[in-house]
Each structure stands twice: as structure tokens, then as C-alpha cells.
Design a protein around this nucleic acid. Structure first.
Lengths: 347, 347
DNA sequence: TTGAAAGCGCTAACAC
DNA sequence: GTGTTAGCGCTTTCAA
């Protein structure tokens, strides 16, 4: 490997020289083609193509104060759960961003580390903002008590959230979310249609708004069908073990014939209990999860699960971002999308 | 929301004024602190802290021709498989990059789309290169026939590969890989230790070097233990269905007591077959997968699986990248890391 | 319609 | 040690 220096890419000046025009004319050919006489435009475009010219992003960024980069914090992949949706979301976001001329810049830090202080939580955001590296952020972990959305707002930093501002009704930032209650209602109605009478809810303990919202969907669907929910709901931590124990307890006491769960992780816990007892998902006991993770897709018999329309979410997020950065009148502060139900053998 | 304009971040000039020095001195304080008199340095550092100054990356990039961005192509998440390792790898890479002062820029395009031509495959790389957006690339899909590494080399573009240049022994680019054969050997030895006599190999069909490598590990371990491999190997597509069918066939003919698989996806297929027949993984038939996906971690009984040390891979990749970009003498062209075995109930 | 001048914020090279 | 000068490649005035 004698030399690693790639020849420097052509600049505006190179194109101008080749086309026999000035640099500004080339700039106009790219940014305001209408200003050029058609024949000049063609000549410049040919030179651009011949040279393989692409504007230098650093120079453009410096001049226009727009990096065409959006920041996304990549939190640690949670292992030993079935929450694999991040993968799908990130890809969908990259794709949607590309179509709008943006790239996604990943950064880390934040939750997951030991000894995370509130200052650490916003550190990654702050640095990227002060170094003008990104134009805006996509914020995903908007769970209760997370200070970043409020902090970003105060800082007047452009951002769009995946997730409603549950805890802060005064929030004015744009957001996109999936209607979890509707998804769980869909799941519950599905089991009701299959003739299930006693359908249990396996949810999260704690004060999660998302968990409460999803539970509402179950309550609503049960009420609409005239089913009682007495004793059929349990709230536990979001782990396979907790789901396993809780479902075993419910089976022993209130004898449900179906489980609707707040996550695939909990639903997998139910599958464990069924395996322990020689019961078969779908035939003996119905189970529905939430997130349509890879686990749900490939586990024996398949796990019916609520699927978030992450591709649509990504598109909506990018659209909101464009409006925000262009200072366009913003049509809707929030966008709520409907999930679907991926039906498999477990129901 | 009356005004979205954040006040402009402070510049070098602001710091210089506050500290009573010239701009260049501030620049030196950041990039060559040794050049400053200690008391001047302290004064400048105080001004930097007071103002919350961080260098503007676009300006620095334009001047130094270094963006401190590395590009990573995010290919579509494969659904209906258990290949969830991308998540973990991306996070590890972001983390390792951060420690070296780099950010990860995601882009898309390439395989997965219908009608992908060779030109499309390198398009994302080409654009990023010509617009000088990134300093280098991390290339992950180095499977046989993928033209991008060769193309990048010809183009003299700096890049580091996750994956050996199997098909191109003349390749001179740095790479990091995981010793798949060693991982599979580990898995096979594990089953041998558990007393299994007839251990089947469930691998990929086609001409995948990775698949051939993994199979070697099985053959090696079997030979070392004096076991015959006659009729015990099957090669199929990488899908749950294929794994299910193939394992059923093997059980009916050569009666293996254990399966070592080229992927978790195939291993899950074996689990399906066991479920179909009322057999219990680990007790009746042992199964080992490859990748330690979330599926392996949470599936009932747990799936023993070979785990790639993705965190180490990421660190090694970034280290190689730093050496490459600094034009340091490169100590090793390739780094081969050893996987571990995550033992669970299925064995 | 096209061209000339200025400057975004930073650092390399040189003078002091 | 510190300051001055120049220029990275681009776009935004403004003049021709």
C-alpha cells in the first residue's frame, strides 16, 4: 500500500473552468437552475457529470449552517428481552432520511451506563448542538422522567420525538407515536372473536404511561364485548422470568384461556409457562405479544403480536423534521399511527 | 413557538476576545496546548469553559479535511430470521468510535432493494466519498461476490472490513473477523463433552465461505474426537423452515442426538421440529446455534449459541481505522477474534 | 442572465 | 509564545 491519498475530488472551480463559466454560475446551476439560460445549464450539467462533481458538504455546511445530518442516540441493545424493534426503526429512519436528503448520525451516551447523571443524559445532545454537527435530533426514549425533551425545548434545539409527551401536556414539539391502546384492543378483539371468554392482561408495573395506555386498550375491548376484567390483570417487570411467573399464577387462579401482553418479552414468558406445563400455544392457550420482534416471528408455533408501523413512523418523523427546519407552518403537532396485528400460531 | 433560532454558538473569536488573546492562540490551546505558556493556557481554558465553546466541526472539517465521521451502510433488517446481531454491533461501534473521537454516519442503499445493479451497490459509498462527508467506511457485508471492497480499494478509499477478504487473497485492506470455525468447534466439543455420539451439522447451501468455514469447525472437532461425520451434514437455505425440514429428515434417517447449526435461524428450525414431535431441547435432543440472538436468549429452555465478541470487533475496527487514517505503520492486516459459547437449556 | 467580492469558522505556515 | 496572513469550498449579496 504505497499511497493512500485519493486524488482530491473536483471543486466548483474545476467545474466552472471546464464549462467555461464562473463558479457562481455553477453554484446557481445546482441550487437555482431556473436562473440559468437553458444552454448554459446544459453545459454546466455536462461538466458536472464528466467530472463526477458533488458539492463539498463541509463547505456548504459552513456557509449555509445546515449539515443535513440528524442525530439519533443509539442506546444499548437490550439483551435477554425480545425488544428488537430498534433495528427495524433505525433502518426505516435512514431510508426516510435519505429521501429527504438527510443522513443519520449516531451517537451514544445516556441511559445504560452506570452512574448516569441528568447532565450525562443530555451531554451527547449538547456537544452535537454546540459543535453544530447536526441540524436536528430524533428523540426516541421519551419515557416518563427523561429530561431530554424538556432540555432540548428550553435550548430551542430542533427535534422531533418518537413517542408522545405523556408527562408534559405543555410540550410544543412535534411528535409521532403509535397508538398502543388501539393495538392492544386489536389483539384483544382478535381473541374475543376466537371465542375466548377469560382474557388476561399481562402488563408492566410502575408508572409507565405507555404501559397504562396499552392496558387501556385491553380494558376497552373487554368492556365493549361485555367481558369482566376482574382479577385478570397483572403488572410485573418487563422480563421473561416475570412473565413466566405471572402467567403461571394467573393460570392457577383465574384460569384465563388467553393472554394479551404489553411486550413480546412478557409473551415469551407465557410461552415458557406453557412449555413447562406441556400446553401448546394457540391450541390450549392463546398468547399475543407486542412489537412483532424476531422472537415472535420465529418462535415455534409463532407468536401473534402487535406490529408497529415503524416505516410509517420514520416517514412521518422526517416529514415533521423537514417542516420544522424549513419553518413551515406546522400542520399537526402530533401524528398518531395505527399498529396492525401479525397473527401467528399462538392464537 | 415564536422563535426557533438558537443563539449562535460562540466561535474561536469570541473565546479569543474574552481571554484577551488572538484566535490562533485559542486554536493552539485546543490543538497544541504545549505551545502555550501555562498561565495563558489556563486563561484560555477558562474562557472556553465560561462560553461553553466547542469548535465548529464544519469549519474544522473544511480546513483539515477530516470530518471525524465514519460511514456504515445499514442494510435492511432481515425479518423472519434470528439474525439480530446488527443492533449489538452498531451500538458497540458507536461506543468504540466515540472513544476515538469519531461519530458513525448511517447510509442506506445496496442489497435488499429490487433491481440492484453493481453501480447501485457502491453508489452510497461513492456519494459520501465525493462529497467528502466521511473520512472512512466500516464495511460489513463482505460476502462472496460483493464488489464494494474491491471498488473501495481501487478508489483508494480508506476502509476497514468486518469480515475476511475470503474471495480475494490479494486484498490489502485491514480487516477484523470472528473465527467462526473455532466457534463451531467450541459448540461441537461442548456436545461431545456432554456425551453426544452422533452430532449433526446443519449448514448453509451455496458457496458461502463463512458457511464453509463454520462447517470446518464441526469437522475438525468431530475428527479430533474420533467421531465419524458420515451422513450427518446437511446444507440448506438460511431459514427456519429449511432448518425444520432438514432436521426432521436427519432425525428420521441418521438419528443424531445433537445438532450444531450455522445460524440461530437454522437452530430455531430444529426447535420447531422438536416441538412438532414432543421432544424437549436439551433433554431429548441437543441444539446449538450461532450468533446468540435475542431469540436464542429468550426462547423456552434457551438456545445454546456461539456468541461473537462484537464489542471487541468494534474496538479492533476503530483501532485499525485510526492507524489507517493516521498513516501509522500498520501492525497487522487482519485481526481474528475468538467467539465464546453461551450455554443454555438446549444442550 | 452572469460575474466579482466577501465571508462562514477554523488551522497551517510563517513572522514577530 | 503569540499574532498575522491566507485559504479550505461554498453561497449570498450586489454589480455589470
Amino acid at each position: 500500500m504505497s499511497d493512500h491519498t485519493p486524488q482530491l475530488p473536483p471543486t466548483l472551480a474545476d467545474v466552472a473552468e471546464r464549462a467555461g463559466v464562473s463558479r457562481q454560475t455553477v453554484s446557481n446551476a445546482i441550487n437555482n437552475p431556473d436562473l440559468l439560460r437553458p444552454e448554459t445549464l446544459v453545459r454546466v450539467q455536462e461538466a458536472i457529470r464528466d467530472l463526477g462533481y458533488l458539492p463539498n458538504r463541509a463547505a456548504r455546511h459552513l456557509r449555509t449552517r445546515a449539515s443535513y445530518l440528524v442525530g439519533l442516540r443509539m442506546s444499548a441493545a437490550q439483551e435477554f428481552t425480545a425488544n428488537a424493534a430498534m433495528d427495524r426503526f433505525v433502518h426505516a429512519l435512514v431510508e426516510a432520511s435519505r429521501e429527504a436528503g438527510y443522513h443519520v448520525l449516531l451517537f451514544s451516551g445516556g441511559p445504560g451506563k452506570p452512574e448516569t447523571t441528568p447532565a450525562d443524559l443530555v451531554r451527547g445532545y449538547d456537544d452535537l448542538l454546540r459543535s453544530t454537527t447536526v441540524d436536528a435530533f430524533i428523540v426516541t426514549d421519551t419515557y416518563l422522567g427523561n429530561p431530554q425533551t424538556r432540555w432540548l425545548s428550553e435550548r430551542r434545539a430542533p427535534f422531533v420525538a418518537f413517542g408522545r409527551p405523556w408527562a408534559d401536556p405543555d410540550a410544543t414539539h412535534p411528535w409521532v407515536d403509535v397508538d398502543g391502546a388501539a393495538g392492544v384492543a386489536l389483539a384483544t378483539e382478535h381473541l374475543i372473536e376466537r371465542g375466548h371468554e377469560r382474557i388476561a392482561w399481562l402488563g408492566w408495573s410502575g408508572t409507565s404511561f405507555i404501559g397504562a395506555d396499552r392496558r387501556c386498550g385491553w380494558e376497552r375491548a373487554m368492556a365493549a364485548a361485555g367481558r369482566s376484567t376482574d382479577g385478570l390483570a397483572v403488572s410485573v417487570a418487563d422480563s421473561v422470568e416475570a412473565g413466566r411467573d405471572a402467567s403461571a399464577g394467573l393460570l392457577d387462579t383465574v384460569h384465563p384461556t388467553g393472554f394479551v401482553c404489553a411486550s413480546d418479552t412478557l409473551a415469551v414468558g407465557v410461552l415458557h409457562t406453557l412449555a413447562d406445563r406441556g400446553l401448546r400455544p394457540g391450541r390450549d392457550i392463546a398468547v399475543v405479544g407486542f412489537d412483532d420482534s424476531q422472537v415472535a416471528q420465529v418462535v415455534p408455533y409463532g407468536l401473534t403480536s402487535v406490529r408497529q408501523p415503524l416505516e410509517q413512523v420514520a416517514v412521518a418523523l422526517v416529514r415533521a423534521l423537514e417542516a420544522l427546519l424549513a419553518r413551515e407552518p406546522y400542520d399537526a403537532q402530533g401524528v398518531l399511527l395505527a399498529p396492525t396485528l401479525a397473527v401467528r400460531g399462538s392464537s
